[in-house]
């Protein structure tokens, strides 16, 4: 039985889709069988970030409405043979996601994969609540910025009340993934520090992903950053986060503590 993970945040643009693709690929690079599910019905983007946008035949809504079998809708990654994508629909809206339909799909995926990673849409409505509904583990993606932290706090509340786990009186395992972190700005005091965010949200830290041009480059070419540039700072941070997800103890380092010569010139962080 695989583990179901929801990648969620409340706020949009914080790095959920980027993280779903990067963590999914990192786990698959390790040989695990992974499916990443796009729950952002109407505004799908995971296909684009993973470079599968030209190959989408069927989507999650087609499967839920019985128009396609699950096996037909799954797209296998061209680079990693244990990585699959279940795309969202672009043309229909979130009302097409029914709780029963989602449950059926997740149950089937859980049987066939080691990891089912659900990329949640922004907001706290139907799409987001259905994406978290069957999760065993939640990854709360947060930027070190006031509105993102506030929205994450709200989402943590929903994870503890609106999920199957919560309704069955179990505890939802939650991890914080701090993304788009800029150490220079944090040092200058212009950005919330890691400790600040941890203290406010009080859930364990899965990783810190630095703000990096490598993420943009990866999305330009349509590859998760852990595949596009597996030596880059964000890729290394995602690899470590994936290992922690698997239960390994990996010491935490704040990325790019020092800015090297080239870092200064090109505005990039030294790895």
């Amino acid at each position: 039985m695989g583990k179901v993970i929801v990648v969620t945040s409340g706020k949009g643009g914080v790095g959920k889709t980027t993280s779903s693709a990067a963590l999914g690929a990192a786990l698959a690079q390790n040989g695990d069988k992974v499916v990443v599910v796009d729950f952002d019905v109407g505004l799908r983007n995971l296909d684009l970030v993973m470079g599968a946008e030209r190959r989408v035949v069927y989507d999650l809504v087609n499967v839920i409405q019985g128009e396609a079998k699950l096996a037909q809708a799954l797209i296998r990654d061209k680079r990693l043979e244990t990585l699959y994508l279940l795309p969202a629909s672009q043309t229909r809206d979130k009302d097409n996601l029914t709780p029963e339909g989602v449950e059926k799909v997740i149950t089937a995926l859980r049987k066939a994969f080691d990891w089912v990673i659900c990329d949640s849409p922004a907001g706290i409505e139907r799409g987001a609540t259905l994406a978290m509904r069957h999760a065993d583990v939640a990854i709360v993606v947060t930027n070190p910025e006031v509105s993102s932290v506030r929205d994450s706090d709200r989402i943590i509340g929903l994870l503890d009340s609106k999920t199957m786990k919560a309704e069955q009186g179990e505890r939802m395992e939650k991890h914080l993934l701090l993304t788009r972190f800029d150490p220079a700005r944090a040092e200058r005091g212009d950005m919330l520090k890691v400790e600040d965010v941890l203290e406010i949200l009080s859930i364990p830290l899965l990783g810190i992903i630095p703000e990096s041009m490598d993420v943009l480059r990866a999305s330009n070419v349509g590859a998760p950053v852990t595949i596009a540039d597996n030596k880059s700072a964000p890729a290394l941070a995602y690899f470590n986060a994936a290992r922690r997800l698997k239960g390994e103890t990996v010491p935490l380092t704040t990325p790019g503590e020092k800015r090297g010569f080239f870092g200064k010139i090109f505005g990039r962080k030294a790895a």
Partner: peptide, 30 residues
């Protein structure tokens, strides 16, 4: 950071532009 890695890279923006043109042409039509 690895200099060789840095200098051997080509710009990724043209790839992004090309991918988007193809995708959006299909999506607008549909």
């Amino acid at each position: 950071m690895n200099l060789k890695r840095f200098f051997s890279r080509s710009a990724s923006a043209p790839a992004a532009r090309e991918r988007l043109q193809v995708l959006l042409a299909h999506e607008r039509a549909s």
